[in-house]
Amino acid sequence: MDLSWMAWTWHTAVFFCFIAACLISMMVWEWCAPGGGARRGILALDTTRGDRLFISLLGSAFINLFWLGLFGPPLWGAIAVCLAFAFCVFRWV
């Protein structure tokens, strides 16, 4: 099947593989510890593990955009901030 019209690059392939790996990890996590890990965190929101992943990914997208707008490329600093942000979300939100 010719997928050249989709204009794949290895960068975008890595990005989507990362998203797929996150989703598969969440499925495995849910299989090991069912129930979604629901709790009320520091934002006073009832969140499950899926919600926390969503918040982490959405927040990371905006961290990258802000970094790009303020400092420009490269984005390694933004990625470090994203990892710290995701850790905080999974730990406390």
């Binding site: 050249s4 989709m6 204009a7 690059t9 960068h11 975008t12 790009l68 707008g69 490329p73």
Partner: peptide, 27 residues
């Protein structure tokens, strides 16, 4: 959506030919 992500980091003048541009368009 995947195709849009792929296009967002490249330049094209048609004919299915693409040139990598990184995050230039976002900037």
């Amino acid at each position: 959506l995947m195709t849009v992500v792929n296009y967002s980091i490249q330049e094209t003048f048609g004919d299915n030919v693409f040139f990598f541009e990184g995050v230039k368009w976002f900037e």
